[in-house]
C-alpha cells in the first residue's frame, strides 16, 4: 500500500486538503453574513474537514481489506 494506489490516493487527498484549507479557496467561504443561521466559514471548515476525514478513512480502510 505504501507506494500503491492507496498511497497515491492519500497524497492526492493531502494536496486537495492543503488547497481547500488555505487561501484562496478559504476566502470563498469567508462571508460575514450568516449561512443557515451560522457563520459560513465555521460551517464550511467543519464540513470540509469531516469530508476529508471520511475520504481518508475510505481510502485506508478499503486498502486494509
Amino acid at each position: 500500500m505504501r507506494t500503491g494506489l492507496a498511497g497515491q490516493r492519500l497524497v492526492a487527498a493531502f494536496f486537495v486538503g492543503a488547497l481547500l484549507f488555505n487561501y484562496p479557496v478559504l476566502s470563498l467561504f469567508d462571508r460575514s453574513e450568516p449561512f443557515i443561521g451560522m457563520p459560513m466559514l465555521w460551517v464550511c471548515l467543519f464540513v470540509l474537514w469531516a469530508m476529508m476525514i471520511g475520504v481518508v478513512a475510505w481510502i485506508v480502510e478499503r486498502g486494509a481489506r
Binding site: 498511497g7 497524497v11 487527498a13 493531502f14 486538503g17 484549507f21 476529508m52 481518508v56 485506508v60
Partner: peptide, 24 residues
C-alpha cells in the same frame, strides 16, 4: 480570534494524511 483556533488541528489532519508515507 474566531476560527483562528482551527489551523492547529487542520495541520495534523493534513499531516496524518501523509502518515502512511512519512510516519511509517
Amino acid at each position: 480570534g474566531g476560527v483562528w483556533f482551527l489551523p492547529i488541528y487542520l495541520g495534523p489532519t493534513l499531516a496524518m494524511t501523509l502518515s502512511w508515507l512519512v510516519l511509517l
